[in-house]
């Protein structure tokens, strides 16, 4: 299967990385009949907890074994205890008590991931980059899309995600603090591309493929001006060779929608929780553009 591995990154927190991962993944599975894997790499375990009830999640990831933590722990201990099939969660449980979205799979995260960053530097940098790709590269081939939900930083776990990705997606809230952060983020990713290059023979080096605007509000000038400044910045970064010509700002912008926030407490993607809501509609349109971007541009 030709799979697309995409890392959702931004070192700014709360910009909608998890919301985009969860809702694009669910929409791809529900409306486009795609096989999708979400890999939760954030110790906060937000995409896991969005899609699993906390009691079930706690039981599943007990001591971190059936979670992405085990992949990193194995790399540190030189062991092989991670079992993909055991760790995998298939579908989401709806109010009926049974699973739906059978094409949507999740590798959950565990709080134990918090301990990884302190220990990981025992390994050589090139060994760190390759952890995720070596552990999961083969499994990724079973899916049409693999979406990596990264923590709000650019430390080692995020680097492993960028290394194994075909492309990076940057969720973005239109304001100045995000703008200044984005310029730095783009430079950092470019730097990583250079560092990764020797270890990715014959493979395309990951780049920022798209930006996705989240928490958009249509009132007044505020957000339109901020998005315009983002576009100006993207043009400048392209000219400076920091962003590629292919990097796009995807539309539509996802608007703030209370149903999306609420769906986290119901442990369902918004397309199942409130399919008629503005949020579900914005994600449906965005996912369509997402498919257009990754399936027509070959």
């Amino acid at each position: 299967m030709s799979s697309k591995v995409l890392a959702f990154i931004n070192f700014k927190g709360g910009v909608g990385k998890t919301a985009t991962v969860v809702n694009i993944a669910a929409t791809l599975a529900a409306l486009h009949e795609k096989k999708v894997l979400i890999v939760d790499l954030d110790p906060q375990s937000n995409s896991s907890l969005w899609l699993m009830r906390p009691d079930r999640w706690r039981e599943h990831v007990a001591r971190g074994r059936r979670s992405t933590f085990q992949i990193f722990d194995d790399a540190l201990q030189g062991k092989n205890r991670f079992d993909f099939d055991e760790a995998l969660v298939k579908g989401v449980i709806t109010w009926t008590g049974l699973t739906d979205l059978p094409r949507l799979h999740l590798l959950p995260a565990a709080l134990e991931l918090l301990r990884i960053e302190d220990r990981i530097h025992e390994l050589r940098p090139s060994a760190i980059y390759q952890i995720l790709d070596s552990a999961l590269g083969m499994q990724f081939k079973q899916y049409n899309y693999v979406l990596l939900d990264c923590p709000p930083n650019l430390y080692s776990t995020t680097k492993t995600a960028i290394f194994s990705a075909d492309s990076c997606i940057v969720p973005y809230v239109p304001d100045y603090l995000s703008l200044s952060g984005f310029q730095v983020l783009a430079e950092q990713v470019t730097e990583m591309r250079e560092k990764f290059a020797p270890y990715l023979p014959g493979r395309r080096r990951p780049n920022i493929g798209a930006l996705i605007v989240s928490h958009y509000r249509q009132t007044g000038n505020v957000f339109r001006l901020a998005v315009n400044e983002l576009e100006l910045s993207m043009a400048a970064l392209r000219e400076a060779g920091v962003l590629s010509e292919q990097t796009v700002l995807l539309q539509p912008y996802v608007r703030h929608c209370v149903r999306v926030a609420e769906s986290t407490s119901e442990h369902l993607p918004v397309i199942l929780y409130a399919p008629g809501s503005i949020g579900a509609q914005d994600y449906a349109d965005l996912t369509q553009r997402f498919v257009d971007l990754f399936e027509t541009k070959k």
Binding site: E229, L232, S233, L237, A240
Partner: peptide, 17 residues
């Protein structure tokens, strides 16, 4: 007002253009 704001918020664009 907003062109000036853009010019200082997006310094990279200023240099480039």
């Amino acid at each position: 007002r907003y062109a000036q704001r853009a010019a200082f918020n997006v310094p990279a664009a200023r240099v480039a253009s």
